[in-house]
Amino acid sequence: MRSTRAVEISTGLFVLLGFAALFFLVTQITNRDLSLNGGASYEVYAEFDNIGSLRPGAAVSMAGVTVGRVESIRFDQDIYKAVVRMRINSAYDRIPADSDASIMTSGLLGGQYVGLTPGGEDTYLADGDRIEFVQDALVLENLINQLVANFGRRDGRDDGSER
């Protein structure tokens, strides 16, 4: 009887430790904070010419604070733009309607996120609204192309003026 009790206690401890570890993995190292209070949020969308490598689940942030997540991304064939739907926590319900959404990159290896810059209007974004002012993702290749073209032009002009 005594030995059975010891077996049961150590088995119980082992199982509890296992579930504690699972709980730790599920709650501490994943980002479920926003979808946990799933009801308290609203959805807005924006149309981008180029979203770079933005993915569903990416953060939507204002002033560096995460206020929501990218819900879905699809390509609209009628306007040839990417439609990004964002779910924003209802705690942030006073975001001006003329706010500006831009796609930015966090760090060198970091993922891309949507940064909202507040506008000045008195009306606020509500469920289903469209964010009018957008700024596309910076595509490195385009940037380098512009840079090279610029340098090329300037070099040419310099040469000409010296002659």
């Binding site: 993995l25 599920v26 994943t30 980002n31 479920r32």
Partner: peptide
């Protein structure tokens, strides 16, 4: 360390 982990590890990985 922790915030980057939380940002990019999701439930499917667990």
């Amino acid at each position: 360390f922790w915030s980057q982990m939380r940002a990019s590890v999701d439930m499917n990985d667990v």
